[in-house]
């Protein structure tokens, strides 16, 4: 079956990537480090729980989530305060016991709740967005053994879009790194 894969033209590659299975998190971490050293860039790992140091070794850019949450908080806090100001000073001024119309300390609780609400909504929606979810169909789901990624197996994918992608040598190096299973992941 490997004859079909000798093509060096990555765009025409019939596979989406090579999936390798490891039984230990430490083996996966070592494997990622070694493959990065050899110049592979299109790597992705799949683990049943967040493994310490994995995203650093894969050299992912930092998560933009803190900025998204900050933006949500600022937008939420400012808009709720502005809403209160507009309502109580402009459209519906009420004289409550002669208190000033702009009684700002009384506006703080709702402002705080608005900050938290918008920051949380931005957090969840931003998280779903930056993860590229919802995506119910993905090439990796074609591999039956991949189901173990949510229980006790650690997987590594080298995508065929990687400029260093060359299946035969890759299979050798993955075996050398201790992979206990390997699959070709087809395009879907």
């Amino acid at each position: 079956m490997n004859e079909a894969l000798t093509s060096q033209n990555n765009l025409a590659s019939p596979v989406w990537g090579i999936l390798a299975e490891f039984s230990e998190a430490s083996e996966l971490l070592d494997g990622v480090t070694r493959l990065r050293e050899r110049g592979y860039t299109s790597l992705e790992a799949y683990t049943p729980f967040p493994v310490e140091g994995l995203s650093e070794r894969l050299q992912f850019p930092r998560s933009p989530m803190p900025w998204i949450v900050l933006a949500g908080g600022v937008i939420g806090g400012c808009s709720v305060y502005a809403l209160e100001y507009w309502i109580n000073l402009d459209v519906y001024p009420l004289n409550i016991g002669g208190r000033p119309l702009h009684s700002w300390p009384a506006f703080i609780p709702a402002t705080f709740e608005g900050t938290v609400l918008f920051a949380s909504l931005f957090a969840i929606l931003g998280f779903i967005l930056v993860c590229g979810l919802p995506r119910l169909h993905h090439p990796i789901f074609e591999i039956e053994a991949f189901k173990r990624a949510s229980t006790n197996r650690f997987f590594l994918v080298i995508k065929s879009e990687d400029p260093c992608f060359e299946e035969l040598s890759l299979r050798d190096s993955l075996r050398e790194l201790g992979a206990c299973g390997m699959w070709e992941v087809p395009h879907v």
Partner: peptide, 23 residues
Amino acid sequence: LGWRNSARHWMHYKTTYVMLAAL
């Protein structure tokens, strides 16, 4: 939502989870 347990997902997940806890 098509969660794949990928390292990239976990990275965002952990950051988001801790921030939601802080909120």
